[in-house]
Design a protein around this nucleic acid. Structure first.
Length: 502
RNA sequence: GGCCCCAUAGUCUAGCGGUCAGGACGUCGGCCUCUCACGCCGAAAUCCCGGGUUCAAUUCCCGGUGGGGUCACCA
């Protein structure tokens, strides 16, 4: 009997910028599949209706493709196990949830958020580990169905064993034991009818024939739930393998986060990093090429890659070393024509220059003025004096807060055309009770390094969302940064001013 | 805080019972040179701590400490 084909997947959630952590997981999944002659599948986990967006999905696909990680099946190219977008598979999940309901492995829960909150507080006081609602859990299916028909809102929860130990087998970690009592009756279908990650993930992995689940360590604690779901559905579970999480370069090496490090692949692209270099760099975090050479191509990596060789310590994403590696690619792998081509692809091409010309022209007295006027479009960090980041009547800390508001606004701004940005700043000015022209002052400095520059909104459009936010974040740091305490208060104020969740 | 995972220089790593603990980034010094960068040479810097096991532990086991993750109608 031949072994079944190896099938792995990367399953990003399109809720924001394409994250380097996603690329990291993708690389190792890809390498594992390729070294075993298997398939690498891309699946979009967009079951969070509120946060998912098509723009984010597009950005993720384009970023992964830019890196050279081609998938064999995915939402854009299809495949034999489609659709590959979870929002298009809701009927499948509902059907499986119904099966679990009927077999008694799941139940409808009619508790409100407030009731659960109250229950949680009491349980914490009593030092009970997990959250269970006995009433809902023990209600008969008949009665629960009657209430559902009467129109009562509910979610569906899985029934998790109350005692015993769950043994997780992990390819890298070996056996991990976890008490069932520490695991709660996870919601598998939300009140909007959409599944949560846990259900959708298990159903899809099974239906798509996934043999190995290679993903971030953050998932280890929920493996028991997944194992139970496989069992209840009568399926064989795939092999699990949890990889370390990328870390910030801060004191504690916390999980890589955009507050402390650029995390968007788009940022690295815009900042002039080459895809080969970024991929190579990710490949040397956690894994190392035999021998002394640290520069290697994807193909070279494939020749030596073994999943078992991955180092379990969470690696710090050290941009300094990435810069060094990138420099080697520029110097060693490009002759002048090739480098010219890279530069054109990056920002010196006609497309970019044509966008800048109308902004620059009114401000040019000589052609040579072009250089200093437009330099900031072709840069990563911009030289910027803290003293220049001034806002009339506000101190440095307050300017930093304004920048932070703008970052949050821009984060949820999917349409990054200048008109949309203009609207956004008008809103911001109004909320802060400032004149727009006054508000904009420090933004010119943060983004271009100078108080006088090309028009802000259009310049921002050209710089792109990721670069703009990065420069604003740098400006905040320059102003002394925002403490997490301050940030928390700020967040609250932001919600009061602009409403909604970020 | 409960539970889970992890632990070689500041950082990424090699090592898989006996090594002067190897390489790379970064740092410092020197050479090259019209400057800088590149390149080259060199230096400082590491096995978290404490118990075992063993003739011998960085390596195996246990405990501690430290760090991370997770405890959502987010993934």
């Amino acid at each position: 009997m031949s072994k079944p084909e190896t099938r792995v997947r990367i399953a990003p959630s399109p809720t924001g910028d394409p994250h380097v952590g996603t690329a990291y997981q993708a690389l190792y999944n890809y390498a594992f599949a390729r070294t075993r002659g298997g398939k690498f599948i891309l699946r979009i986990e967009d079951t969070d209706q509120a946060r998912s967006s098509p723009e984010s999905e597009r950005a993720i696909l384009s970023s992964l493709r830019w890196l050279g990680l081609e998938w064999d099946e995915g939402p854009d190219i299809g495949g034999p196990h489609g659709p590959y977008r979870q929002s298009e598979r809701t009927a499948i999940y509902r059907e499986h949830a119904a099966r679990l309901l009927e077999s008694g492995h799941a139940y409808r829960c009619y508790c409100t958020k407030e009731e659960l909150e109250q229950m949680r507080i009491e349980q914490r006081e009593k030092k009970l580990p997990a959250l269970f609602d006995e009433v809902c859990r023990n209600r008969s299916l008949d009665e629960s169905s009657r209430r559902a028909e009467a129109g009562d809102a509910y979610v569906i929860r899985m029934k998790v064993p109350r005692d015993g130990v769950c043994v997780i087998k992990d390819l890298l970690h070996g056996e991990i034991r976890k008490d069932w009592a520490s695991i709660d009756d996870q919601i598998i279908i939300k009140s909007d009818g959409f599944p949560t990650y846990h259900l959708a993930n298990v159903v899809d992995d099974h239906l798509m024939g996934i043999t190995h689940v290679i993903r971030g360590e953050e998932w280890i604690n929920s493996v028991p739930k997944h194992l139970k779901l496989y069992e209840d559905l009568g399926w064989e579970a795939p092999v699990f393998c949890h990889l370390p999480l990328l870390r910030n370069a801060d004191k504690n090496k916390s999980k890589l986060s955009k507050r402390k490090n650029p995390t968007s692949i788009e940022y690295y692209r815009r900042a002039g990093f080459l895809p080969q270099a970024l991929l190579n760099f990710l490949g040397m975090l956690g894994w190392s090429m035999p021998g002394d050479e640290e520069k290697f191509t994807l193909d070279q990596m494939l020749e030596h890659f073994r999943l078992e060789d991955i180092n379990l310590g969470g690696p710090v994403f050290d941009v300094k070393k990435l810069r060094w590696l990138n420099g080697r690619y520029i110097r060693e792998d490009h002759d002048a024509p090739a480098l010219r081509e890279e530069l054109f692809k990056w920002a010196l091409g006609p497309e970019m220059v044509e966008k800048i010309i109308p902004l620059a022209q009114p401000r040019l007295e000589t052609l040579a003025d072009w250089g200093f006027l437009t330099a900031f479009f072709f840069a990563d960090a911009v030289p910027c004096q803290a003293e220049e980041l001034k806002l009339k009547g506000h101190d440095a800390g307050e300017v930093a807060e304004v920048f932070q508001f703008a970052i949050w606004q821009l984060e949820r701004q999917r349409d990054f055309r200048s008109e949309a940005i203009e609207l956004l700043f008008k809103e911001l000015a109004e909320a802060l009770e400032l004149k727009v022209r006054v508000l904009l002052g420090p933004f010119y400095v943060a983004l271009s390094g100078k108080a006088a520059s090309t028009p802000l909104y259009q310049s921002m459009e050209i710089l792109g969302s990721d670069m703009v936010r990065m420069r604003l974040r740098r400006a905040i740091e320059l102003l002394g940064g925002l403490s997490s305490k301050k940030l928390k208060a700020l967040e609250k104020r932001y919600e009061d001013l602009f409403g909604g969740t970020r």
